[in-house]
Structures are given as structure tokens and as C-alpha cells.
Design a protein around this nucleic acid. Sequence first.
DNA 1: GCAGATGTTCTGTTTAACAGACGTTCTGCT
DNA 2: AGCAGAACGTCTGTTAAACAGAACATCTGC
Lengths: 160, 160
Amino acid sequence: MTALEDDFGWTLGVVFRAFVKATNAAVGDLPGGHRGYQILTASVRDQPESQSALCQQLGIDRTVMTYLLDDLERASLVERRPAPTDRRTRLVVATETGRARLTELDLRLCHAEAHVLSGLSAADRKTFKALLCRLAGHVNELDPVPSACQAVQDIAASTS
Amino acid sequence: MTALEDDFGWTLGVVFRAFVKATNAAVGDLPGGHRGYQILTASVRDQPESQSALCQQLGIDRTVMTYLLDDLERASLVERRPAPTDRRTRLVVATETGRARLTELDLRLCHAEAHVLSGLSAADRKTFKALLCRLAGHVNELDPVPSACQAVQDIAASTS
DNA sequence: GCAGATGTTCTGTTTAACAGACGTTCTGCT
DNA sequence: AGCAGAACGTCTGTTAAACAGAACATCTGC
């Protein structure tokens, strides 16, 4: 219980970790974990025009994306189909199953967020989110975040 | 710029990542990175009575701690000396150099925190920290955090 | 003094990510 | 049309990090 490190960093880490843990629990056995979720989301919302576009968007290595998609495809959540305009590229589209799974996951993730934030009143929750958002925006100006996944990778080699 | 994932998780990740990055930059070439800093801090503040106590406190594997301490010792920042009461255990004590390095690091980390929080006014900064602290406390009740480092490890296998 | 427990280190295995090579397909130039 | 070079996706090999378990040294209780 001693303040091992700077209090701010420690608390931030605790909260972030709790969110990560809740998120993982919510995602459950989805192939690829949180990255599977992100791929699924992108395939529905953004209709990525190629695998490599998806890679760049999510900050995932091409070689990793390959077997990530393999797993998702094996679970019938997405399909790789050759792009009609350029047969080098594969279009990543969500199946009906994948779409259904995504709406379910969104719900669960919403609960996960609520779980982490349950220590605050509704008003505090709102101000916290607002401040966090301002902070994120400011930080993004200072040093644009390449991607959501990149963050995780950096963190892996980093500190709390 | 599309909201890939839940906004809360994304913003939290962005801010956390920014902090991590700033922290790493502040720590610089310290052997062991942020863990080196934590070990150094613990060796000064808590005077750990054994390596394994340190491991448990920081959530670092024993085998990892071994070469982490090797590196720190090689840099003359800490010393392993046999405990007078039990010669099986090694006392980890900071050298004078290590102590000086730590005060310098504390200063740099303070700047790093200020850098991340520079997007908020002093008042907002204060409320943000307070809310974060309440959140961390609450989260800790729900599911006690074993350690600061454990968080990072979990995050490595996780989401933003 | 001996059996078992504990602290630390070493070895081997596993996992994850990345760099590079390869086959396929497209684009630009002649 | 045909060819050189680039781009996309996949596969192979290498590297780094973490953990499990064995091995060694030392302590505690009987």
C-alpha cells in the first residue's frame, strides 16, 4: 500500500488496468482478444479497403494480422474476399454472425465501463470523462497517437 | 480519428500511454527502465528485507529480478549484500550514486507528470487527480491490485 | 546433526512480435 | 502488348521476454 511511485502514475495505472481487465473479461473468448474486437468493429464501421489499411489503422503488424484474421475467419466472424478492383487485396467484411457478436460485445463493454466507473456518482463520472477527454485531446496535439493498439504495444515495454 | 472503440477506453488509453511515454523518456537509460526506477525507489524508501519481498511488492518474477538487479548493480546504483540475520537473503541497498540518481529521476518524473497534465488548468488538474484517486480506491476494493508492475504485464496481454 | 523449508540463481520452454523472402497481382513505361 | 518495378498478403527464421522447474546455498526445528 506504500506509494511505490508517483501517485498520479500509480492511480492512473490502477484505473487503466481495471478497465483493461474488465474489457478482457467482457470480450471473453473472442479470437484475438481485444484486437479481435477492434478488427470486428473496423470491419463493420469502416469497411476497410484492405488488410494493410486495417493494419495501419490499428497499428498491427501485417504478419500478425494474417493469423488474427485466420482465427476470426475460422470462427465465421469475418470473411476475406478478394477486392473486385484489385485482386491483390483482400476485403475484410463481417459476417452476419460477426455483426451480431459485435452488438453483443458493445453491450458487454458498456457494462464493463460502467463497472469501472461505478465508484463515482453520475455527475462525477461526467466531469471525469470530460476532463479525461480534454486531456486526451491535448496529448494528441502534443504527440499524435498512431493507433489504439500501438499504445498497448508501447505500454508493454514501458511503465505504469 | 474514428472512435475505434469505446471512447472512455480510448481516451484513458491515450492518456495512460502519454504518461508512460513521458515516464520512459524521463527514466532514460536507467537499467531496467521503469522497473529499475521502482526497485531503486523501494530500496531507498522501504529498505526491502529480501529480493523476494521486493519481487512480491513490485510483482516481478524472481528470475527476472535476478538480472534486473545484475544490471543495476553493474551500474553501481544498488548493492546486493548478504543479510546479517539470514545469509540466504540478499539485502538490496541503494548506493550513494543510486540515491543521487533517484532524486534526479524523481524530479524528471515530476516534470513528466506536469507535461501530461499541462492541458488542464490547475483547478481541473486537482479535481481530475482527486476523481482518479477515488476511482483507484474503489477499484482496489473491488479487486485488489497486486502490484504496479503486474498492471503493466497484464496490459501487455490486453486492450486499450 | 539432520530433515525439511526458504532464498537465490540457472536452464529450458513457450509465446509474441518483427524482419525478410516469396508468390501473386497491379501500374507505368515503352 | 510486354516488361520492370511496386504493392499486397503469406510464410519462415530470429529475437526478446516471461515463467516453470531444477539446482545450490543457507537457515530453522527437532
